[in-house]
């Protein structure tokens, strides 16, 4: 089949295959892959990321907030879209909690470097993708109340990663407890040793030591 125009006809056969296939090939998603958004929504991959959010434990966002306002993410953020102000207590002493935590998502590029740099497992990537506002500025700055989302939500969007995070936190807690216990034991041991030594000294006073 090599007459003039045969190449065009072959090409048209491919087009015809694709036109017809787009009606019948739905199940295999080979020819027709259009999704009828917004009625149909794509199933996002677990890793899928858009903007950061803050995780809190329990039910009360203010009590359960993991962020300690260390400002590492603010420093590391490549486009510098994070803004943090440390909270103060009644006496004006800074405490380990953010008073202001803003993320300008019109600047954020979703690179995930804040997540990687956070040592307190408190900032994580969300997968929301329908974000809009009526002007360019204020609606696209997310404040702390909008950023705080529960650990349950985190488990909902990223079960594997959230479970790993929880395991790490639990392990850290256990380590800390163990360390505390060890420290306590050490203190107790030291006390006991001191007591024993004192007792020994007392004994030595009363009874001369025997050469071995």
């Amino acid at each position: 089949m090599n007459f003039p125009g045969s190449g065009i006809i072959k090409g048209m056969a491919v087009t015809a295959l694709n036109i017809v296939g787009s009606y019948f090939d739905r199940a295999h998603a080979k020819r027709l892959i259009t999704e009828q958004y917004p009625e149909e929504r794509p199933k996002l991959a677990e890793a899928s990321r858009s903007f950061p959010f803050l995780v809190f434990d329990g039910d009360d966002p203010e009590k359960g907030i993991r962020c300690v306002a260390c400002k590492i993410c603010e420093k590391e953020c490549p486009p510098q879209c994070i803004y943090i102000v440390k909270d103060t207590d009644a006496n004006g002493k800074p405490i380990m909690r953010p008073k202001v935590f803003d993320i300008d998502i019109s600047v954020c590029m979703g690179c995930q470097i804040c997540v990687e740099s956070c040592p307190f497992e408190s900032i994580r990537m969300d997968n929301i993708y329908e974000v809009s506002g009526y002007d360019r500025f204020a609606p696209l700055v997310l404040h702390k109340p909008q950023l705080l989302k529960s650990n349950a939500y985190y488990h909902g969007i990223r079960p594997t990663e959230a479970a790993a995070t929880d395991a790490r936190i639990e392990a850290a807690r256990l380590r800390k407890e163990a360390a505390a216990k060890a420290a306590a034991a050490k203190v107790a041991a030291a006390k006991a040793a001191a007591a024993a030594k004192a007792a020994g000294e007392k004994a030595a006073e009363t009874k001369p030591t025997q050469p071995e």
Binding site: L44, A47, G110, Q112
Partner: peptide, 29 residues
């Protein structure tokens, strides 16, 4: 479809941000 694979691996379709100095950011799911 390739971008879907990228999304599952790195979390983003186009802006992968995947390599790191001395390796890559995450292992395969």
């Amino acid at each position: 479809k390739i971008l879907d694979l990228f999304e599952e691996l790195t979390g983003a379709r186009m802006m992968l941000n995947y390599a790191r100095f001395g390796g890559v950011r995450c292992d395969t799911p």
